[in-house]
């Protein structure tokens, strides 16, 4: 069992938890992920590592409620435990592997979309610890969905916040924010790391391609085991099929087939939706989902 040491509600759908998992805390690096399972009947859910404390033996995760398993996960409190917590999985960020002289020469921009801010944070923090300054864009649909802004400001040189509806910060999406920085504010970057929803990463990559900036994205597809065994997480990068869990999660964003990835994300939508309805409506669910055939 993996005890929960801290719970923070970041928005009405996004939660942060510190979980005691000494083996993971000891060996993880920015860019890697874990798989968690709440209880016997829960799914195995891949989550990017948001932070870690090697001394305390804890790992910080951030998750958004999207299905039955995460709906139960959000009910966990300090003192409760995850049944399973395995990692670190995947490869660390390329930046972690680079020698310091090379890092110092780079002008790096991180672009975080929504809950994607969580996996961006440990990378920025790690770079700050190495003495490397980077800029960060945090974008979301509206102000209530912006997370970890204060924490990010502590470790980033400049943090730019944008919202689609203009309720907070710059009005516009992350690509418009990037345009503004480059066109109007005289900023220049030669390395972008974009992490967020597929659609946001897709358009960010189209933009950075037109600007000629190499871009790394972090993929979070459907997974089961997370060790290369099932192949559920396969994506196409250039003309190669890659398994995100062992070859990634980070890839060259200009080569990723986002349309295919978005299509594959839909595979279990109806099944997941069905399971969610069961949790939310319980015994009161008598048809209407279009799937279960009501109470026949």
């Amino acid at each position: 069992m993996y005890p929960i040491k801290k719970v923070e509600v970041l928005t009405d759908q996004i939660y942060l938890m510190d979980v005691e998992a000494p083996r993971v805390a000891k060996s993880c690096l920015p860019g890697q992920f874990v798989i968690v399972k709440t209880d016997e009947i829960g799914e195995r859910i891949p989550l990017t590592i948001c932070d870690y404390d090697r001394t305390a033996g804890t790992v910080t995760i951030v998750f958004q409620t999207v299905g039955a398993s995460t709906e139960r996960m959000k009910e966990l409190r300090v003192g409760d435990s995850f049944m399973d917590f395995v990692g670190p999985l995947g490869l660390p960020s390329d930046l972690v592997e680079l020698p310091k002289e090379k890092l110092e020469k780079k002008k790096i921009l991180f672009i975080a979309g929504g809950v994607g801010t969580a996996p961006v944070y440990p990378q920025v923090k790690w770079l700050k610890e190495q003495g490397i300054d980077v800029d960060v864009i945090i974008g979301a649909r509206n102000q209530s969905l912006i997370i970890l802004e204060e924490q990010m400001k502590q470790v980033a040189k400049n943090t730019y916040v944008c919202t689609d509806d203009g309720s907070y910060g710059f009005q516009g999406n992350v690509t418009q924010m990037l345009d503004d920085l480059v066109q109007n504010q005289g900023k220049s970057y030669d390395h972008v790391v974009a992490i967020g929803p597929l659609i946001m990463m897709k358009f960010t990559c189209l933009k950075t391609k037109s600007l000629g900036i190499p871009t790394v994205v972090s993929m979070n597809p459907i997974m089961v085991d997370g060790t290369g065994m099932c192949g559920a997480c396969r994506i196409t990068v250039g003309d190669e099929v890659k398994f995100v869990c062992v070859d990634g999660p980070e890839f060259d964003g200009h080569l990723v087939d986002f349309d295919q990835a978005m299509m594959r994300q839909q595979i279990y939508k109806t099944e997941e939706g069905r399971a969610l309805l069961k949790v939310q409506e319980g015994e009161t669910h008598h048809g209407g989902c279009g799937n279960c055939g009501g109470d026949e």
């Binding site: 089961v224 085991d225 099932c230 559920a232 099929v241 299509m263 594959r264 839909q266």
Partner: peptide, 14 residues
């Protein structure tokens, strides 16, 4: 890579 193509490993593990 179409939806509905699985490895036997994935199908059986699920």
């Amino acid at each position: 890579s179409a939806n509905g193509v699985f490895s036997a490993n994935e199908y059986l593990t699920r």
